[in-house]
């Protein structure tokens, strides 16, 4: 193929590349740049130091807790779901359809429904507990229960995606491996630990990368479910952004921190998962 032909086809890609670069690199650079500025245009790191007084540490820790808890829960249950989907049983098609349904529900809608379920007054979770003779829980009472309902709601909405990813990974595994292990006397647990898990590691790291980046970016769900308190990184950024009186520079600083965390996380997973595996 001559280079002249290459150029002609490359021109077809140029609009997309320009579109994506113009709408992402430029804004990201301007966020980083302005995070080091005062409203009057001087250079400063005061935006970062000020964040400490506004609960940046706890927002970071809470975001980490929510992300890790949600990832572990989603990965574990999605693997379970994917393994059920692999089994031929009557109604397996209905099961696959039911499991995929939350994927189609808008985040704000699912947040609204869970806010009704976990409402401290007139909530369905409490009416369930009381129906079983247990004490009702004040879900809005502590930050532990608040973060818990965020994790649970997030799990409902996003597990289907992870399950579908893992399902296609499982369908790619050769059944003969399992047969051979069974003949050699390996039980279900050992087959899972020594065959399923190692062979699923690359696709699980992809699921971790995609979901992990989204978990750090979790925004609409906590905003509807628990508001600004306890703050997560995104709700903190948004609070600075919507509050008047010059706090927009704090939001730039907090957004820069979020950007750095996501870049580090993506690099880490790509490195641990073996960049070679991403055979694009």
């Amino acid at each position: 193929m001559s280079s002249r032909v290459n150029w002609k086809y490359f021109l077809l890609v140029v609009p997309t590349i320009i579109y994506v670069l113009a709408l992402s690199i430029y804004p990201a650079l301007s966020v980083v740049y302005q995070s080091f500025q005062t409203p009057s245009g001087h250079y400063t790191v005061s935006n970062y130091t000020a964040l400490g007084y506004y609960g940046l540490q706890s927002a970071l820790i809470d975001t980490l807790i929510v992300s890790i808890a949600a990832l572990v829960l989603q990965l574990f249950l999605a693997l379970f779901i994917a393994m059920i989907m692999m089994k031929p049983f009557k109604g397996s098609k209905a099961f696959s359809t039911i499991v995929v349904v939350p994927f189609g529900v808008a985040t704000v809608v699912s947040a609204f429904v869970f806010s009704q379920i976990f409402s401290p007054v007139g909530g369905y979770a409490n009416s369930f507990l009381v129906g079983f003779g247990l004490n009702p829980v004040n879900w809005a009472g502590t930050s532990v229960t608040q973060l818990g309902i965020v994790v649970f709601s997030d799990y409902w909405k996003n597990t289907p995606l992870v399950a579908l990813i893992l399902f296609s990974g499982l369908s790619g595994l050769s059944p003969s491996m399992f047969d051979a292990a069974t003949v050699d006397g390996a039980g279900p647990m050992r087959r899972f630990l020594h065959i399923t898990l190692p062979n699923m590691a690359p696709i699980m790291s992809i699921a971790l990368l995609i979901r992990g980046v989204s978990e750090f970016n979790i925004f609409a769900l906590p905003l509807v479910l628990i508001g600004y308190h306890p703050p997560l990184i995104n709700t903190l950024v948004y609070e600075f952004y919507t509050t008047t009186s010059g706090t927009i520079y704090y939001s730039y600083a907090a957004a820069t921190i979020l950007l750095v965390i996501i870049m580090v996380y993506a690099m880490f997973v790509l490195w641990r998962g073996g960049a070679k595996n991403y055979a694009l």
Binding site: T16, A255, A266
Partner: peptide
């Protein structure tokens, strides 16, 4: 080119949204 597009795609929404 595809890898470049996807790496850019991981940019947090709020980081892009506020300046634009």
């Amino acid at each position: 080119i595809i890898v470049l597009l996807f790496l850019i795609n991981m940019m947090p929404g709020i980081v892009v949204a506020i300046p634009i």
